[in-house]
Amino acid sequence: MNLRTQLVALLTLLRKEYTRVFRIWVQTIVPPAMTTALYFLIFGNLIGKRIGKMDGFDYAQFIAPGLIMMQVITNAYGNVVSSFFAAKMQRHLEEMLVAPMANWTIILGHAFGGVVRGLAVAATVTVVALFFTDLHVAHPFITLSVIVLTAFVFSLGGLINAVIAKSFDDVSIIPSFVLAPLSYLGGVFYSIALLPEFAQKISLLNPILYMVNAFRYGMLGVSDIDIGFAYAIIVAFAVGLFAFAMWLIRRGTGIRS
């Protein structure tokens, strides 16, 4: 198929994905809003008032970018892993595999679906955050580009997880035992400047730290790390995961006999 028909296939897949997201909005959009409201209520208002300022901002303001990013990461990943794995288990993934869709079309269609959910959740969570604190955007382009790139990275991660997964257990292990700890330890609730030196160095190995800080820089104008380096890390992950996903799909791992 030529590029035009691949784009038609890509848009079809993207439409299928975002239709699913909005059709089951009670499962996809509402829970992150509820969770974030609780975080703001407990950490932002009740405990945050006792913490005082962090990096020159109210604690609720400080954690807002991190909470938004944490929900984007979780939901972008969860969207693709559940959509792709369900399609694999119900075998309607075969609709795509028998069609003349290029591997990149299948990967990008799912990943963009994850980005749409990530952005929809980010918008919803931002509205929730406004009930608890004042927000402003210091660098709109950085804010938007970091959130889109991060959603893309974790959508690819979800896709890879779903491709490799053989059971429902396999799709819950990474979110529970990898994503959650990395997110909580990725500077969502604190500046790493508060940590002892050795813990700061360990934290620098956490890719989510760069995403949270780049996003916080976009919104608040403050960051624990160099913004250029953060971009480089995010783009490197995007390219690396895309290449890995291409390799897996080309090999037929988990999807072809």
Binding site: T12, Q90, E95
Partner: peptide, 22 residues
């Protein structure tokens, strides 16, 4: 084996497949 998306409508199933073929 039956390999349709049980949660999607008949119409969406066929039009989506058409889209996959460009």
């Amino acid at each position: 084996e039956i390999n349709i998306n049980y949660w999607d409508s008949v119409y969406n199933i066929v039009t989506t497949q058409a889209g996959f073929y460009g």
